[in-house]
Design a protein around this nucleic acid. Sequence first.
RNA 1: GCCGGUGUGGCGGAAUGGUAGACGCAGCGGAUUCAAAAUCCGCCGGGGGCGACCCCGUGGGGGUUCGAGUCCCCCCACCGGCACCA
Length: 862
Amino acid sequence: MKDPLMSRYTPSEIEPRWQAAWTEAETFVATREGDKPKYYVLEMFPYPSGRIHIGHVRNYTMGDVIARYKKATGHNVLHPMGFDAFGMPAENAAMASGGHPKDWTYGNIDTMVGQMKPLGFGLDWSRMFATCDPEYYGQQQALFLDFLDAGLVYRKNAVVNWDPVDMTVLANEQVIDGKGWRSGAEVERRELTQWFFKISDMADELLEAIDGLDDWPAKVKLMQANWIGRSRGLQFAFSTVDAPEGFDRIEVYTTRPDTLMGASFVGISPDHPLARHLERHDPDVAAFCAEARRGGTTEEALEKAEKLGRDTGIRVRHPFDTSWELPVYIANFILMDYGTGAIFGCPAHDQRDLDFARKYDLPVVSTFVPADADAHTRPEDGGGAYVPPKGDIVDYVNGLRAKGQMTGEVAVEQAIALCEENGVGQGVTKFRLRDWGLSRQRYWGCPIPVVHCDSCGVVPEKKENLPVRLPDDVSFDVPGNPLDRHPTWRDTSCPKCGAAARRETDTMDTFVDSSWYFARFTAPHAATPTDPEAAAYWMNVDQYIGGIEHAILHLLYSRFFARAMIATGHLPETAKEPFNALFTQGMVTHAIYQTRRPDGRPVYHYPEAVELRDGEAVLKEDGTRVEVIPSAKMSKSKNNVVDPADIISRYGADTARWFVLSDSPPERDVEWTASGADATHKHLARVYRIASEVSDAPEAGPNGADEALLKAMHKCIFEVTQGIESFGFNAAIAKLYAFTATLQKSDAGREAKRQAARTLAQLMAPMTPHLSEEIWHMLGGEGLLAEQPWPTADEAMLVDDSVTLPIQINGKRRSEITVAKDLAKDAVEALVLEDAAVQKALDGGAPKKLIVVPGRIVNVVV
RNA sequence: GCCGGUGUGGCGGAAUGGUAGACGCAGCGGAUUCAAAAUCCGCCGGGGGCGACCCCGUGGGGGUUCGAGUCCCCCCACCGGCACCA
């Protein structure tokens, strides 16, 4: 008799054993062996915040499924892991608890690696690095120097977003609703000398190349295109009347030159040189400008489209009618950053301008009207601004050259042409994308490797002096940059003249760190940023997996960096687009359980404190009804966080891995439920039990059972393979459930069952590698399953001899017939007409139409 | 406001224009058990009929088609991104 203990599924015993075996065999160490094709799969590396969460588990499990599958299909796989380890939380932690950012960061990395290893990911740990390793950031400094040399980095004075809480500069992209994206503090404007990457030089190229990213989500591509924001327009100058000296022209940029005949005012930004000039001479203007600047975008909701302007008293002449004078206003809704910081307002075709015109009693003149101008109320008669898509055909009544019906696009081009002919201005293409400011006044980042010398100016550090290391002896008892107040760190000698000089104390934006780590993984310990051979072999990343939150910044910066690294010889030309395919996965969510206090404030309860009674969620303690908010983002403050460590100790890693992939498509959110995790664990235990019982099956089963089981097996191989290839992990898992049931119920003989169970283990291996490995060995499999080739489906086993065709009558299913697979169409028709349901429907008559789709369906139209 | 996306049982979700609801959860019934746990078997969109069966059903309304969850048009709701970007 079998020992019942032998058939118990014990992940806590199985999982560490196989993890050790893989490590021992160096199964997942990436090698460039033989003539196998390479495959580079990468998940966005984590920030070492302290502990991994279940979302990481899902992210890395997806990557691991791909990695293990690709290995099994004969690829040399690179699947590395590292840490995006610089950044402000480490400094914040140091400020809060007095430790050192370095200790905090490396401590967290240790913890997280300790949490990741029990999950059994097939990662090449020998390539691990953190971006705060001097070995890594030293190479980043080398890149910076090469970029500087290539003219890809420059310094300029710039008004920057100053975060008064973090005491640091933020990129435009890092300001959300006028607040710092991390601190949430109100951002102030400050002028500083900053380092910039010339990403805007590549705006056009970065935009054009989006088209070639076939395996990127359309959504991400669109977001990037919008972010780069190319626009075609006209730039021209108004000549001024009664303007101060030096301001006899005002340059404006417009994307709608076709509306020039509808212009009624000129607006300039409060930061426009003319506004700044007026400000110095007129306290009222100064007060207005100060007020306008304060608004920013923060007050958006508050101000609720409150358009404020101030007439400067200056007038400009219309370029096509010099007797026509337009007033110049300083207006709070014009940004100095975009275009020329000055516009002409056309109230009829811009809602903002219309609001403004009505407020200040300026004329409203339509230049075009809808092509089918039926019930349209013109803006001059109190209607809203008419702003159709540029591709729509409209009727030009007062266009610039344009007459009659045409699209805005055509009219714009005509207007530009006319202006150019008359020397009024020229067509220009502008981008919304700004240069990437990378200077940060922080300690915990990659030092910018330059030296400030009184006689030589800004001098790059010599490469042989890299890395410029961060000093360890710093304190965080005062806000600001500890590098600035370090007693000796700044002191150095000029690399050019040798005189005493000062180091740059700014460090780099952490987006720099993550913009090339994928390239570094190909040769993580090379003495140069990359190793040409390794980069040529492993690049590009074949499959990149990460969150949609990185759709713009990280991915755009990485695309820029790849081009910059090619320009400086650090990557091959083919690595221009470093990520061949991108997949953005959904979150893992969890219900929130809440009750309310008498004053209505919510109280959040841990899932363990809640149970179901008669279909209602109640508190275990006293039976109080609990409000359930399903599918909520996990948050510590809402008490709905699931800790992977708890799941592993309770159910094992395989259960966690299987669950996060089941139920929902990977690009969507998945809700973690205790019952689902229980069910997964039960299922895995069932698979284990079935596998251990297979040996006991009788030698030969009843007729046909073997073939039926093997057919189901080949079908399963086919479907699971397809599921993994297409990121349909949830669908693949559904097929595995079904095949498990088939195997369990099968009357097949011992050998067929053993083969089916071994194959089941193989097909499950990308998701549940430990359980699969255990079953593989239990059933006499050779070597490590993780090193076995992927099973292939036998085409011959996928087709059935007979096929069941549903019969529809007028498109509704009414009956079915089973016929030989390749039965001729007319023979099928004859059989269909004999069918009882069809006879009844025809009632003696002939069908109007009879459609036979071979192998699929039959439709009888009566 | 603009740009995307989504909408299918009590729930998560399946479905190359071809039997809607695979698979899982929850629920119900049964077997096993002294009993329970565990396990196994079955049922499980709504309505009608004793029944063979019939009617309705994929957010709403139209359309294309022999046939629509799927394609087209209009509308609604929710989610996400962007935004005084000229």
